[in-house]
Amino acid sequence: MAHEVSHDQAHDPSNVVNPEHGEHHIVSPLQYCFVFGALLIGTAITVGAAFVDLPGVLNPVIALAIACTKAVIVILFFMHVKYQSRLVKLTVGAGFFTFIVLITMTLLDYMSRAWGMW
């Protein structure tokens, strides 16, 4: 990682001498087992929570929160994003950010078209 090397090494415009992505991390099988266990527990919790009548809109909120947590775990560990370069991390983040912007803007349009007409 660039922040671990001295300044002159970090000053490497073509990113060749000491590339940021120089070290290649291999995730251990034990770590995958923990991730697998966490995902199965998350599935059990989300099924259980669906049959509990929670106040207000909490049911979908909790279900989606668990789904998002599971997705983040998969992205970070199964898809190795935690160990990737900042370029890949930024790409993944930008993709989800753009997706949220698109959903929000479109939903705002649909919700405000008939504003005050009911």
């Binding site: 989300t46 669906a50 049959f51 009548d53 049911n59 279900a63 989606l64 789904a67 997705a71 998969v74």
Partner: peptide, 23 residues
């Protein structure tokens, strides 16, 4: 990466289609 992505899609499909309307 592709296979895990398909996995993630299902992680959202399952609660949205099967669970959140159940209560």
């Amino acid at each position: 990466l592709y296979w895990h992505f398909v996995d993630i899609v299902w992680l959202f499909l399952f609660p949205l289609l099967y669970l959140i309307n159940r209560h």
